[in-house]
Design a protein around this nucleic acid. Structure first.
Lengths: 207, 207
DNA sequence: AGTAATACTGTATAAAAGAACAGTATGGCA
DNA sequence: TGCCATACTGTTCTTTTATACAGTATTACT
């Protein structure tokens, strides 16, 4: 059922890439142009075979209505984009777009909530939060804005560097604690700027 | 710059939802139909205002070419869908689609590699792998197929249950080890079916 | 060698979809 | 009060896009 010819695979690949970069499916003519076909019929006949094989589907007389019928696509939840910042300077205010290093895209179900406009992500460097099972190289998704509750993990700006710490309150005084005996803890949190509160984590594959 | 009127916000919301469920942007007439407008011009004038405010963009004379201009969209990498299985019976062979519980969608950059067709995800229950910083409730992404190397984390089928363990080799014999002193370890791995090798992890927000 | 599925050319047609023209009504604001 | 941005109606026109008809090579398989 799923055995595609080389040409058919090429077309499916093109559809995938086109949608990725253009945000919309190509028209028949656009497909023909990409492959150098002079007749739209070359495309339609291919598409019909792909439809018969269940790889794609479309609605008749509808522009750009092609869809790759991945059975998973139906299950896909809303995918949100969270900006990854390299280093966060003091404000985290207006022109944040300049420091964006990348983008973490993940569905709301997998991270357990819908990130707000103020969400951002950081790539963890170092193992200072290993006690909370956050490792070097992990992406952490944080929310900027809400006041942290005691015990929550926060990103704070220390010496121009943004580091993760646990936010604790002792005798009414807030302070930060590293979750690794090798690191100094108990940093008074009052003078520090809390950049964000930890929400979710993505751990990439190790090489 | 970003202050939208109520109507404009409604239209943006509709565009978002339409794309989510239909995989394509609506046409002007489809937008008009949704809001009960009798003239396509009602839509175009709204879209022009939204364009001027930088919220959307489109290409002239192109069907369904509307796009929400999130600056992050440009940075978005290829998003892959990985099926989440509830319980994995013996084979993991043909008709896997029936046990699919959901879908983890995440971009390839954030998990550090492109999942193959044989990739799948599990929701971790229990804390038997806490020593490897994998917690209860985490989603783990695994690859089915490749032989595990010593020290890698694998999903194995034990008593009909799929559990995570570390794959080790001692004196040429493979065995599995739980990463929690509370659990028994050193289960001979020879009779067990290795379902997949750990690749990446997603930790949802707690509560 | 023969048959069928695949891989195309070339042209024509009709539906779908965007864009333009000419207006009306309403609300906020100076 | 007048002005302007917003929020629409109604219609026409042109481009885009899908689809149908009529064919020719090519490959793959029996």
């Amino acid at each position: 059922m799923a055995t595609l010819t080389r040409r058919q695979q090429q077309i499916v690949d093109f559809l995938q890439k086109f949608q990725q970069s253009n945000g919309t499916m190509p028209t028949i003519k656009e497909i023909a142009a990409h492959f150098g076909f002079r007749s739209p019929n070359a495309v339609t006949s291919h598409l019909q075979l792909l439809k018969k094989k269940g790889v794609i589907s479309d609605e008749p007389n509808k522009a750009r209505s092609l869809r790759l019928t991945s059975p998973l696509q139906k299950l896909r939840q809303l995918v949100c984009d969270v900006p990854v910042y390299g280093s966060i300077p003091a404000g985290l205010a207006a022109d944040r777009e300049q420091q964006i290093e990348g983008c973490v895209s993940v569905d709301v179900n997998s991270i357990g909530y819908k990130p707000s406009k103020n969400a951002f992500a950081l790539r963890v460097s170092g193992d200072s939060m290993i006690g909370k099972h956050i490792l070097d190289g992990d992406f952490v998704i944080l929310e900027h804005g809400p006041d942290p509750r005691a015990g929550e993990i926060v990103a704070a700006l220390i010496d121009g560097q943004c580091t993760l710490k646990t936010y604790l309150v002792k005798n009414g005084k807030p302070f930060l604690k590293a979750e690794n005996p090798k690191y100094p803890n108990l940093i008074p949190a009052q003078e520090l700027v809390i950049q964000g509160v930890f929400r979710a984590l993505i751990r990439p594959t190790r090489n």
